[in-house]
């Protein structure tokens, strides 16, 4: 079995008066986009800085594509791209010159072509000759993203990447992340705005006070939650369907002639059995979906606080 692209084991970061990250372990495979979720001060940025080597950690290990940070920091630098939550740019350089600086530093082959590609990918081609200081915050954010993508890293750490982007920018960011996912990259993306992450994260890591509260695929985490909210729509036999739901122990929240929303305490198997019963009893089910099988629901049920 090949190494995961990013493997963190028992990571601990101590600050003078507080344990910023405590015993954090997670694994991210190729093609994973993992949302690192948590309230302010949960330790998301510290975790990312520790993974990238910018923050010293007390214990634990970080491996990127099999290379351990403590032993092979240079190998790690070639394989990992870190986009911080602010935009470090040389204000007096043009966007092209800024990218050229990093292309040289990473010894990117066919520098000019790659810079053009990254500018195009982040919709900055028409700003190639603008000074960095003339760019808006959102544009700077895109420029730093372009810089992060420049050496084509296998693992990307994106700290609040959408915080300065307008709605269109966020949609485009989502497209880029989906492209990266399809290209087999591993992406760890932090945010406390959950709607930003919904839709393209297949994994989630929920942090609170430096600890990892939950980690897994979105589907698994949804299933782990003790109580699930289900929405069902039917075309026939509404009365019969409602009766089956009541018998199965579902707590009906809303009901109408065409469907219902209910809370269900049973596990995944019991839920599957319920659906099977409805169908075999002649209820024509038109729609069956979990409400809140998304990050927001998972986050709320994880016990973490201060959700935005």
């Amino acid at each position: 079995m090949s190494d995961p692209l990013l493997a963190i084991e028992h990571l601990r970061v101590d600050f003078p008066e507080v344990v910023a990250v405590n015993d954090l372990s997670l694994v991210i495979e190729p093609g994973d986009v993992c949302g690192l979720i948590g309230p302010n001060g949960a330790g998301k940025t510290t975790t990312m800085r520790a993974i990238s080597g910018l923050q010293e950690f007390t214990r634990g290990s970080v491996r990127v594509a099999g290379h351990e940070l403590a032993r092979e920091p240079d190998e790690l630098k070639r394989r990992l791209g870190f986009m911080p939550d602010f935009c470090p740019t040389y204000d007096q350089l043009t966007t092209w010159e800024f990218l050229e600086h990093y292309a040289r530093a990473f010894a990117v082959p066919e520098r000019a072509e790659r810079i053009e590609e990254c500018l195009e990918l982040t919709w900055l081609t028409d700003k190639r000759d603008s000074l960095c200081e003339e760019l808006s915050r959102g544009m700077k954010q895109r420029l730093v993203l372009a810089k992060t993508l420049l050496p084509n890293p296998q693992v990307l750490l994106l700290d609040e990447p959408a915080s300065g982007l307008d709605p269109l920018g966020r949609i485009e960011l989502r497209k880029i992340l989906l492209q990266l996912r399809d290209a087999g990259k591993a992406v760890l993306i932090s945010s406390h705005i959950l709607t930003e992450l919904s839709g393209f994260c297949n994994k989630a890591a929920i942090m609170e006070r430096g600890r990892l509260v939950k980690f897994g695929t979105i589907a698994d985490l949804g299933h782990q939650m003790s109580q699930r909210k289900i929405s069902v729509k039917w075309r026939t036999a509404a009365d019969k369907a409602l009766e089956i739901l009541k018998i199965s122990g579902a707590k009906i929240l809303e009901a109408s002639a065409v469907g219902a929303t209910f809370d269900f305490d049973g596990g995944t198997d019991a839920l599957d059995e319920l659906l099977k019963t409805l169908v075999t009893q002649g209820v024509r089910v038109a729609e069956w979906r979990g409400v809140g099988d998304d990050l927001e629901q998972i986050f709320l049920q994880s016990g973490a606080k201060e959700l935005m």
Binding site: S52, G53, L54, D74, K77, R78, L80, F82, P84, F86, P88, T89, Y90, Y102, A105, F106, A107
Partner: peptide, 13 residues
């Protein structure tokens, strides 16, 4: 202060 020092340190230079 601008974070460029860290940014340069993360390159293979």
């Amino acid at each position: 202060k601008a974070g460029l020092w860290d940014s340069n340190r993360l390159t293979p230079l």
